[in-house]
Structure formats: structure tokens, C-alpha cells
Design a protein around this nucleic acid. Structure first.
Lengths: 233, 233
DNA sequence: AGAACAATGTAAGAATTTCTTAAGAAATTT
DNA sequence: AAATTTCTTAAGAAATTCTTACATTGTTCT
């Protein structure tokens, strides 16, 4: 099995690094983020099993982030905060967090709580259930974020893994134009080097699956000299 | 839906009563116990959704009780203790508890933690309620959650323990794609390396039992690069 | 306890699907 | 019309899944 991935989010880089070192010692894979928006981006693109989240952060605070995360995925969240007032604890937990640790904290305790949450998360039967269907829709296209499946006018379309990632990326921001290079970077997660053509071939294959007439695409359009986009409808 | 049942265990009757009153205010049903042995007895005979457990108790202390409970049932445990030393927290959590609250505690915080644990624990239950006969059905497949048995077009199929767990997992969410890795985590409940093949072989054996033509599966399908699913019908 | 049987895990090669590359064709812009 | 960008196609490479056989473990019955 792959290592468990833990996302650590705090604007204080020293704290992030300290936690990361301990988590890695415990055998976890650690991904770092320094504000809430970064965190959300990582969560939606990567496979994360647990999140440690600071409350006080620039751009998007921890509690709001908790809400947004819960909309999308049902993974354990441990809130981290300097505030030790009870009201904050209650607020954090009722917003969907699974645990709450106040700074300064004992690192070993945090590790124990991480282990505890993951143990529960991995048990059979405690299956991910998102409360409501989470769908990205645009025109006849409908992408299910939970199952990573696409339907066109209600008809399910079989996409390959790579195709799915590309469609998901474009569907997240209908109307936004993604240069081929950016698509490559975000889908393959490695720097692009002479790969525009690869993206292009995949675009072509996606079109063959979702467009009535791939030569005159209705959904997946090119913007000359810039990139590709899903038509916003 | 029925009320949730919470078991409160502490040798200090005042504390038990105080917690009970608050829990009842929140709409829970409360069962009381005053030592660990009583608690174990209640757990094995009654349907309990969550336990609040004191560490210092006569006959059988909270931490030992936690271990025993875990052997038997997989319900959330919140440890309650006067000791606030970090070492105790770690011990409690690593023994299988899901949360740890130190006395004196804020009642509202305790309520919030109860709610938080139940929310996670019950996500699954909500799904069960919709399938009220306790049958999971999809096409010709029908899985009985009570007896853990599967029928194909009415014909009972003999599955082994592992096969049953896999089928149950997939049948709970027809159409949802489970990566082999996730199947392993949820069914075996342990981390492991290089186990995709193990899952795969089990999938193959299940197919031999439920599919007319295992080479062209009708029910248990693979989604390339992602995982396996039961066809949603 | 030992034998017979069932269940599970592991490994290796085969089969299948998907990805990448490259090169020429087509379309668009200047 | 020339230059640039995108499209199309096909073939080989790569990755993933399938299949089979066998070793190991566990269970049941005598």
C-alpha cells in the first residue's frame, strides 16, 4: 500500500516543518500548504487521508476551509489553534472537524490523535459518504466529483484516468482557458517539456467521446494561441 | 430515525447524571454504568452508538475497558479523565479511543465532541435507513446486510469471508469506483505494501462465482487506472 | 493428532488497455 | 501566401489488469 498522506496547513512555516518531521518519522507522507486556498487546491487534486489545519490563516481561515473541505471530501480534519477558549473548540467541531488541538501542543499527543483518526477512517463500513451529490455542471456536461465520472446529456461516458483528470480540471472552471502547458503540469504533476502534443492528443480523444461532431466541438473548445476550455453554459 | 444511545460510565454518579442530563437535552438516549464490568455487560447486550468512559474506575479501569470494547464492537469511545498529563492522552488514544477529554471539562465541548464522533460514525447508517429492508440491490445482485449473504438472480452464492467483505463494500455504493488500494485498506484494515494483486485475485474469484462469463463481467467491472465497481442498475 | 478440505496469499507471464511520440494534414492568423 | 498553431493518425512503448498455478495457512472431521 502507499503511504498515508497527511496535509499540514499553517501560515507559520516553522510549525508546518516541525509537524512534518514528526509525521514523516511516524511513516506518513506529508504535503505542506501555507494558506487555506492552497490547501483546497491540493485537496481537490491529490489523494489525502487526513488534514491538520490551523485556524488563523491568511486568505481563507481554517474554519471556513473546514466547511469547504467537508462539501467535497469526507476525510478527517484536525483543527490546530492558538485559541484555547471552549467556544472555539465547539465551533471547530460543529463545523465538521473531527478533532481540535490547541497550541502549544505536545507533539506526541498530536501524533496519537492523527493515528486515532486514521484508524477510524480506515475501518470497513465507515465509508465515505458525501451528504449530497457533488456535481460540476455546464450545459449537457455533468462531472461527478465523488465518482469521477462524466455524463453527457445524462449518458455516462467512459473516460480513461488521464482523460478524467483533464476533464475534471477544465470542468472546475468552466470558461477559463487553460494553456496546454498548464494542463500538463496540473494533470501529470511534473514540469512540461515538449509535451503540448500529448495534451492535444488527449483533448482529441476526449472530444471523440463527448462531442457529437469532434471536428466542430460544442463543449471542449480551443482558443487559438492560448489554450483549451470547457464552454460555460 | 431512532434516538441515538449513549453509554456513560463513571464511578462518580454526580458526573454521570450531569452528563446524562445534557445528553438528553440534546436528544440522545442515555444509559448509565458505574464501573467497567457493568459497561462491558451493557455493551454486549444492548445497541449502543457511543461510549463516554472514565479512566479511573473500580473493577475495570477505562483504558482496559477500551481495549475490550474494541475487541467486540467498533463504536466511538470518548475517554474522560482527571489526569491531564499528555502521556495519558496518548495512551488513551493509542488504545483505541476516539477522543479524550480532561476533567474539569466544559459540558458544551463534550456535547460537541459527542456530536462530532457520532456524525462520523453514523454517516454509514444514514444510507442504511434508505434501504430499509437491509438489502442492497443492483441488477440481479442482492446483498443481505443482516446475514451477509449474496444472491444472484435469486440464487444464493457461497462467498468466503474476505469475498463477502469486498462485495459488501462495493454493493454499499453501486457505481462508485473503489481503487484496489482502498479496497485493501477497508477490508483488511491494515496498511500493506504491494497488495494490488491480492485484491485482484479476490476480484477474479468473486467474478467466477457471480458472473455468467467472468471474462466479460456484467456486474463487477474494472475502471482502468482507477479501480473496481459494481455496476449501478 | 492427523488427514482432508477450504480459504488465502504470492508470483510470473499473458492479455489488454492506455499513453506517448512523431510526422504530415488541416485550419487559422498575419 | 507564409507562418503559426492545431488536428489527425498510427504504431510502438508503457502501464494495468487478468489468469493460472502453487505455496501457505486455517478449519473440520475422523
Amino acid at each position: 500500500m502507499e503511504k498515508q498522506r497527511v496535509l499540514v496547513v499553517d501560515d507559520d512555516r516553522e510549525i508546518v516543518n516541525a509537524i512534518a518531521i514528526n509525521l514523516r518519522n511516524e511513516g506518513y507522507e506529508v504535503i505542506k500548504a501555507y494558506d487555506g486556498l492552497q490547501a483546497l487546491d491540493i485537496i481537490s487534486t491529490q489523494n489525502i487521508q487526513l488534514i491538520i489545519l490551523d485556524v488563523m490563516m491568511p486568505k481563507l481561515d481554517g474554519l471556513s476551509a473546514t466547511l469547504k473541505i467537508r462539501e467535497e471530501k469526507n476525510i478527517p480534519i484536525i483543527i490546530l489553534s492558538a485559541k484555547s477558549e471552549d467556544t472555539d473548540k465547539i465551533l471547530g467541531l460543529s463545523m465538521g472537524a473531527d478533532d481540535y488541538v490547541t497550541k502549544p501542543f505536545n507533539t506526541m499527543e498530536l501524533m496519537a490523535r492523527v493515528k486515532s483518526q486514521l484508524r477510524r477512517y480506515l475501518r470497513l463500513g465507515d465509508v465515505n459518504v458525501t451528504n449530497k451529490a457533488n456535481l460540476l455542471q455546464s450545459g449537457g456536461l455533468c462531472f461527478d466529483l465523488e465518482n469521477h465520472t462524466l455524463t453527457v446529456d445524462g449518458e455516462p461516458v467512459r473516460l480513461t484516468a488521464t482523460e478524467t483528470k483533464i476533464v475534471e480540471l477544465l470542468m472546475r472552471f468552466p470558461g477559463r482557458i487553460f494553456p496546454a502547458e498548464e494542463i500538463y503540469q496540473r494533470v501529470w504533476e511534473e514540469p512540461a517539456y515538449k509535451v503540448e502534443n500529448t495534451v492535444m492528443v488527449h483533448i482529441r480523444r476526449i472530444r471523440e467521446k463527448i462531442e457529437i461532431n469532434p471536428k466542430e466541438p460544442k463543449y471542449l473548445k480551443v482558443v487559438w494561441g492560448i489554450g483549451y476550455k470547457i464552454e460555460k453554459i
